[in-house]
């Protein structure tokens, strides 16, 4: 730790720092771009975690070991895991379709993004293009954590205390939003289910199996009722109804041509 701090805690950029930057910056950028492009939410999350880890190292590189570790522990460790949990709960099967539904949205977004980036870079280059950093050597003289603590508990103590209120509010809010209250009677019991089954207008018998009475035994082929109509009830709602083409509906000749 000391070694790292000694090596990097300077106002000037050393070669080692430059090398590290040039390795980590592409990784962070690549992770970010990959996150936006990835079709699976899980991949996005993992690529974002990658970017965040790189950023954590970059914080350490800039004399911020405390904030760097917080980044890794809180962000990558806790927040990203929360993301993964939620993905697991809701978004696992919902892949984004690549079709854009809003006309011109993608083009406008990319155009505006590039414009934004160019503007920011121009501003940075013209504003602080050749600034020399003061460095945190002096501030970190007693150690980075000690320096932050000294400021946090004196100068920013009020804001720090307010964050506690924010966090507890967030926790309670999340509980309220995520919690679904269900009383004992809400779930139908066996009695209610039987009543439902024998209520007027409902056919209490078992549903016809798929493929029964049909020329095709596919599960997507609905059963035929005695009057010849197709029974919607015989097929699963998740399976789309399949219309047979005349070629498919034609006899397959599996009976050895006896019916010709």
């Amino acid at each position: 730790m000391n070694l790292l701090a000694d090596a990097l805690a300077s106002g000037t950029v050393t070669t080692g720092e430059a090398v590290t930057f040039w390795i980590l910056a592409p990784i962070a950028l690549g992770g970010a771009i990959g996150m936006v492009l990835a079709r699976s939410a899980v991949h996005s999350a993992l690529l974002l975690a990658c970017t965040m880890l790189s950023l954590g190292v970059l914080y350490m590189l800039q004399s911020g070991p405390f904030i760097g570790f917080v980044q890794i522990i809180v962000y990558t460790g806790a927040i990203m895991m929360l993301f993964l949990f939620v993905i697991m709960l809701v978004g696992r099967d919902s892949r984004d379709s690549l079709l854009e539904t809003l006309r011109g949205q993608r083009l406008a977004a990319i155009g505006l993004g590039i414009g934004m980036a160019l503007l920011l870079c121009t501003g940075l280059a013209r504003g602080i293009g050749s600034v020399t950093a003061v460095g945190l050597d002096e501030a970190n003289a007693n150690g980075n954590v000690q320096g932050i603590a000294a400021d946090l508990f004196t100068k920013y103590v009020f804001a720090f205390e307010v964050t506690s209120a924010l966090l507890i509010t967030a926790a309670v809010g999340a509980m309220l939003l995520a919690h679904v209250e269900r009383r004992k009677g809400d779930r139908p019991g066996q009695k209610e289910l039987s009543r439902l089954r024998f209520r007027k207008g409902n056919y209490p018998g078992p549903k016809a199996g798929p493929g029964v009475f049909a020329t095709s035994d596919s599960v997507a082929t609905p059963a035929l009722l005695p009057d010849g109509t197709e029974s919607e009830r015989s097929i699963s709602p998740v399976v789309p109804v399949r219309e047979l083409t005349p070629a498919e509906a034609a006899p397959k000749g599996t009976d050895g041509g006896k019916r010709k």
Binding site: V13, A32, V36, L58, A109, I110, A125, V131
Partner: peptide, 23 residues
């Protein structure tokens, strides 16, 4: 190399994030 490169990297990441929100 100056610390400004970090800022450029940050600008790039911010923009990528913004475009991501939009698309």
């Amino acid at each position: 190399m100056t610390p400004t490169y970090y800022l450029v990297l940050a600008a790039a990441l911010f923009t990528i994030g913004a475009v991501g929100v939009l698309v």
